[in-house]
Design a protein around this nucleic acid. Structure first.
Lengths: 353, 353
DNA sequence: CTTTTTTGCACAATCGATGGTGCAAATAAT
DNA sequence: ATTATTTGCACCATCGATTGTGCAAAAAAG
């Protein structure tokens, strides 16, 4: 009974086979047949035929007709980073559980590409869009608005659509404090030994820097501008910043606040160039959690952003008819060195053995 | 001139505005207007109108008409893992450079879900499908075949469609040899000190195990079945295997071949439960590269699979009209401890700072 | 000034599914 | 037996873009 290489069956094929009209077939197969007072026996007949011929609806046709597609989009800056890829993982699961089809795309943190990508998604009539880590959420908002597409910001807030983001200020405070406390009274960290590397001029970085500086002031009593080294979200730029520092000072700062795991990769590149001893007494705090990073040869304190809760909240908000443009903060979690947390992969069953 | 919250402009709107027929508008906007001998001035008129009204084609309608969608799919087992997420990243770039729209989905290594997901993709009339790490590539093939969709296997081979995979056998040989050579003559590794953990009964695991055993035989002269511990692709199962071993032997094997970075996370979980000293003299080889893992406190030798080349080859093959069902092997790369390689993120420009 | 050729475009069918409307036949009410 | 209801389904326009075909008007050829 398999369609062998032929075209896929359509409602018209089933219409002929069943002797019913196409609209009847359609109604039966999309579940509206009771409303349309189709006889139960007719429905069964058609359902059987559909199964035999492996009918599946052409979703483009359906989408065209309804001007909805069943697609739900997630726009990411990048894929290959544990924070965003685990967000993608939980996003998929959540969308599937709502009976929709998840579609995840990345736009490289490039405003132009963000807009182009979103236009494409809109052209496919996606139903909803989750905008994560966009550099320019408000422009994206404008596009969605014009197309009547529900959307929400995640991770980086916008001013025109509801946003769900990490509490970067609190997270940074926790992280900075944890770094400081990691040193015992004997060799207490001095203010000029605690640096922040990475990030750019976006909301998340600003908040993290603010938290970092506030705690530095509170605990160490000083907060020098020179201790803030924003390098963008680029491993290489971050590496250069470390190299420059090292060349100048002959060592690394003892306390390092790294703005994201992407910037942390800059430190890795630096590490590859320098012997173990260089890192003998440093303490690193990283905003983002990566299981492998947590076990590096020096203490690495990490912040795990709760993307599961962020997405859950976002799903809740996006369903609302009259969205209130406000920012919802989700508390991140401090992760002590040498900690292997569970992740979305753990909810996947692994059968065979 | 913005459409304010209105519906999106269609060719019919532009048809009215321009005084031309819809078919003329269509031809102008999809670039076929020269073939259709449309006057240059007419084309310009329509193009201007399109721009003013922010026209973008409804891709569902276009897709319905051509029974193609411009979508190219990548089916992954999971997202949140460096190997697959970096594959997703390069996939996106490559698809975009071909003027198509990438769509990446994961199916949790669950055969049922793989099929369901692919059916959905087919229902959206995707044009091509890259099947990465599928547990059951041949069933996926059957679906694609029936729908007339070009497809190719990556990472795990099938028997019915062309496949591009890592040379897992060679990679495992290189990796195993590197582990052995890491110990100097003084305290040479003995056969029963070199174990393999992770993987299941899939092609990749089998090949890696074969390479591992062959080298063990060649270099150490023995190859005990007990040294192979397949635990599936689950961090927790892997952790348990380590715990069990440790409980039995009071230590870890000095040489560890870990089948994938997912299994490596099982070792991390084990590490979290045990003090540093437990890992004082072990050497780990991991099939998969993760930059952070490369810098752990013990030597970690890794294999970087060349997903860029794999995808490039796959793109090349998928264009061919008469696909030859054969397996193309791509050589992976041995990565020495403390190495931070560049990745797809490095080709992203980071402007602002 | 005809006839032929070229130019420029409009018409209409089509892709597959949906849902409002209408109308016979079956059943119930009187 | 006649009228009123209900049941069961067919018909057809519609979503937006594409494309084969046809036909006037303009230009070229004779």
């Amino acid at each position: 009974m398999r369609q062998q290489g032929k075209k896929k069956a359509t409602i018209y094929d089933l219409s002929v086979l069943s002797g019913c009209s196409a609209s009847t077939v359609s109604a039966v197969l999309n579940g509206t047949w009771r409303k349309r007072r189709i006889k139960e026996s007719t429905a069964e007949l058609i359902q059987n035929l559909a199964e035999q011929h492996q009918y599946t609806a052409n979703l483009q046709a359906r989408g065209l007709r309804n001007s909805r597609s069943g697609l739900v989009g997630l726009l990411l800056p990048v894929h290959d980073n544990r924070y965003f890829s685990s967000m993608a993982q939980t996003f998929e699961a959540q969308v599937r559980s709502h009976g929709k089809c998840p579609i995840v795309v990345s736009a490289s943190r490039d405003p132009q590409e963000e807009l182009a990508t979103v236009e494409t998604l809109i052209a496919y009539s996606i139903d909803e869009l989750f905008i994560a880590g966009a550099t320019d959420p408000d422009s994206v908002h404008t596009l969605c608005e014009a197309a009547g597409i529900r959307h929400i910001n995640i991770d980086l807030p916008g001013t025109k659509a509801p946003s769900v983001i990490s509490d970067n200020y609190q997270g940074a405070r926790m992280l900075t404090e944890a770094i400081v406390r990691r040193f015992d009274a004997a060799d207490q960290l001095r203010p000029q030994e605690l640096f922040l590397f990475g990030g750019r001029n976006d909301h998340a970085s600003r908040e993290r820097i603010r938290g970092f500086r506030d705690i530095k002031m509170e605990l160490l009593g000083a907060d020098d501008d020179a201790c803030i080294q924003p390098t963008g979200y680029s491993p290489n730029m971050t590496q250069r910043a470390f190299e420059a520092f090292y060349e100048r000072e002959g060592k690394l700062p003892r306390g390092l606040f790294i703005n994201s795991s992407i910037n942390f990769e800059g430190l890795l590149r630096f590490m590859a160039q320098h012997p173990h001893e260089t890192f003998a007494d440093i303490v690193v705090g990283c905003y983002d959690y990566d299981p492998f990073a947590s076990f590096l040869p020096f203490p690495v304190i990490m912040i795990r952003q709760d993307s599961e809760s962020m997405l859950a909240k976002a799903f809740e908000l996006i369903e609302e008819s009259r969205p209130v443009v406000e920012i919802h903060l989700i508390q991140p979690e401090l992760v002590h060195p040498r900690t292997a947390l569970m992740g979305p992969l753990d909810s996947i069953r692994d059968i065979d053995r």
